[in-house]
């Protein structure tokens, strides 16, 4: 079992200004995530799931406490360093697939690698591998508008996985999919998790998604209500 900690949250507090006052979205969060975990953040709206994903994804920084991702303290990163961290180590999957409509499936997936200055040959191999992983290599030349919901989300997964990130953050990735497609997508993610040892961290309140998790962290009003280990691979609190 791999126990390398790649995400560490210590006494993380996040407050937002609301009018003249403040709203506390996260209250004293202490969590660790190991490499290769398949974990879910669950809880009702406003419980702090997305705020936590934002901080782990270096899109935001904590008001208090320390969030360390891939050995880097999020609060101390400049905007450019945050972008670099996301570019090389973190993949994102959104509730809506958010593909670039004027580009083909191949080009959408390739975009993440263009930012890393890979050669054309390297990019081609990596993109075709990623499309293979998610089972849509034959749709490489299609435009996003021609894809079904499930296919669109597979492209989004391929785009997130093509750079082989250590962490993949997914915000309600199956919210817009029917049960069959949601199952297929989660199976794909699960197999990628095993194959590439990528840490998957979901935000969801979908019961169907929770069934696939090795670890479920229940959030309520910005605090960890329960940290539930389902499968022994996920460990650290």
């Amino acid at each position: 079992m791999n126990t390398e900690k790649i995400i560490t949250l210590e006494n993380v507090v996040k407050r937002f200004k609301v009018g003249d006052g403040e709203f506390t979205a996260l209250k004293d969060i202490n969590l660790n995530f190991d490499k290769g975990e398949f974990a879910g953040l669950v809880g009702p709206s406003g419980s702090g799931k997305t705020t936590l994903l934002n901080i782990i994804g270096s899109l935001d920084s904590p008001t208090e406490g320390t969030a360390t991702v891939m050995g880097k303290s999020i609060s101390e990163l400049s905007h450019k360093e945050s972008a670099l961290l996301r570019n090389h180590h973190i993949g994102f999957i959104f509730q809506v697939y958010n593909l670039l409509p004027v580009y083909t499936v191949y080009e959408n997936v390739e975009f993440a690698l263009l930012l890393q200055n890979h050669s054309a040959e390297e990019r081609k191999k990596a993109v075709m591998d990623a499309l293979d992983w998610v089972g849509i290599a034959d749709m490489a030349n299609k435009k996003p508008a021609k894809l079904s919901g499930g296919e669109g989300q597979r492209v989004a997964i391929a785009r997130a996985m093509v750079k082989k990130p250590q962490i993949l953050l997914a915000d309600e990735p199956t919210a817009n999919l029917d049960a069959e497609n949601a199952h297929a997508i989660l199976q794909t993610m699960k197999s990628l998790n095993k194959e590439l040892d990528t840490t998957f961290l979901f935000s969801t309140h979908d019961e169907k998604v929770m069934k696939y998790m090795d670890r479920i962290i229940h959030l309520r009003d910005g605090s960890v209500e329960k940290d539930e280990i389902i499968n022994s691979k996920s460990s650290s609190k």
Binding site: G57, L59, H79, K80, A83, L84, L85, R86, N87, H88, I90, F92, F94, N98, L100, F111, A112, L115, R159
Partner: peptide, 16 residues
């Protein structure tokens, strides 16, 4: 707006 948001999330810097 959406495209720039995706690109920021994918790790493209604002300067880039």
């Amino acid at each position: 707006y959406q495209e720039y948001g995706i690109r920021l999330a994918l790790g493209e810097s604002k300067g880039h």
